[in-house]
Structures are given as structure tokens and as C-alpha cells.
Amino acid sequence: MTRGTARTVLVTGGGTGIGRAIAQHFATEGHTVVVTGRRAGPLQSLAEETGARALVCDHSDPGAVERLAAQFPGRLDVLVNNAGGNTDFDGADAADLAGYAAAFRANLDANLVSAALTTRALEDRLGEGGSVIHIGSIAAGQGAGSYGAAKAGLTAWNLSLAGDLGPRGITANVVAPGYVGDTGFFRDRLDADRRTSLIAATALGRAGAPEDIAGAVAFLASPSARHITGQVLHVNGGAYTPG
């Protein structure tokens, strides 16, 4: 997308980190941006900074997503399913089997079900030339428990979505970051040694930045990427190179 071709963009989980950088990128390019998330404060801050419209929404809740759809403009050009994160860092109790099941489902709801619900609720608003872009993770190919499983499921589900939307001229892809600094992903639980090892695993010798992910998302939404669909774009500095 370029200046002069303003489109409507929804970024879920857009109040902080990667989602915030994506929303800022599109707003700077002159597009109409809607950001959602569970916390009103960060959303309102971004809205004041960029002119984006802020709507509170828990994307794992079907009722909340239905209410969001009712408030949304008539046409949607770009849907960025960014809401999610590793819910294991939130301290869920997995001491017994019931706790383990709840913790496992929490990651599936936050990272896979949320994207599916949002896309289903809004896919009829997408027109020809539209794009759906999910934020995946390097964890989908490297493990990381239920979080990695959820992101791997997102990749698999996107293949079906791309097939469903393709006849309408709509693309569907995944951007899979590696370690990205300047976000709240690790909930302040990332120690210096672990951070050093994550950076050392890259070929470029640095952590990713939220703007790196925003640039990849913008490319997949652009006219230059209209024959790219059903794919995973890895943005991790060379830390993971699938065969």
C-alpha cells in the first residue's frame, strides 16, 4: 500500500509492542487504522498519537468479537491478527491435569481461536485486493509447549483460509517473528543470559525490532505481494531457517 490509496486496517492487540508498531506504520502511510486490545489505556495513547480508532476487545471471546464487528466500518482492506502472546507467562496453575488443560487451552484461545473468530466475524467485509496477516512465531517450528503448538496450528489453519479467500482475490499469510526486543512478551522474565543466547542464535547478531515485523506485514498487504498467499514469512535474523 502506498500514499494516495488509503485503506482501512484493523490491528488486533495493537496497543503495545509489535501491534503498536504495525498500527503506527499504517497510520503514518495515511491509512484508516482501527486498533483493538483488552486494555483501554495503551489503546487510547496510540489513538491520541496516530489518530487511530481504539476499540476494547478480547478476541478470544465470541461475544466481544461480535460486538466489535457491529461497530466496525463497512469495508475492511487489511486484517492483522496480532493479539496473543504466551499465556504461560501469566502464571496459570498447571499443577494437576485440570490446570494443565486450562493452561494449554489458554494459549490456544489467545493465539489461534482469537484469530479464527476475528477473521470469521469480519471476512465478509474484505473485498478484492484485501489481506489477512497473522502474527505467528519462531516457536511454531522450535517447540515452546502449548504456545508453539498454537502458533503451529495458526500456520496450518491459514492454509485453509488462503484457499477459501483466494477466489475473492484476498491473500492470507503469516509473519513469524523470532526474538523481538522492546515488547512485553516475556513479562519481565527474560534474564540477561537467555537474552544473550537468543541474540547469538541470529545470523545478524541483534534482536528484532517491532518495526522489522511491521515492515514485513506492510509488504504482504501491498500491491507487490498480490501473488503471495498461504505462506509463512520468517523474520528472525536467521535464527531459524526451515528446510
Rank of each mutant, 00 (worst) to 15 (best):
V78L: 15
H31E: 04
A95N: 08
A218C: 04
R206P: 01
C57K: 00
G243D: 13
A201Q: 10
G163W: 13
A201E: 08
A140T: 09
G19H: 00
A218V: 03
L161Q: 07
N107R: 13
A209E: 10
A200V: 03
L112R: 05
S160C: 10
I199L: 07
E29K: 05
G51V: 07
T2A: 09
Q142I: 14
I199V: 14
G163S: 12
A23G: 09
S131Q: 13
T171H: 09
V180H: 06
G181F: 11
D191V: 12
A64K: 02
Q142A: 07
H25P: 06
G30Y: 05
T183I: 07
A101V: 15
C57S: 06
T87G: 00
R105Y: 00
S114T: 03
G63N: 08
R195Y: 08
D77M: 06
R75T: 14
Q142C: 09
A98D: 15
D58M: 06
A23Q: 01
P210A: 10
H59N: 13
V33G: 03
T12A: 10
A103P: 02
R7T: 11
A54W: 15
L68M: 01
D109F: 14
N236E: 08
W157K: 00
I228Y: 02
P242N: 06
N111F: 10
A69S: 04
F185Q: 03
F72L: 12
D188Y: 12
L10V: 04
G238P: 13
V11H: 05
G41C: 04
G41I: 02
L122M: 07
L79F: 05
S114H: 07
G178V: 07
A203P: 11
A140K: 10
R67D: 15
A27D: 12
G145E: 03
T32S: 12
F26N: 04
S224D: 15
S60K: 09
D188W: 12
A209R: 03
V113Y: 09
G163C: 11
L122E: 05
A54P: 13
R20N: 06
L108G: 14
E48Q: 14
G130R: 14
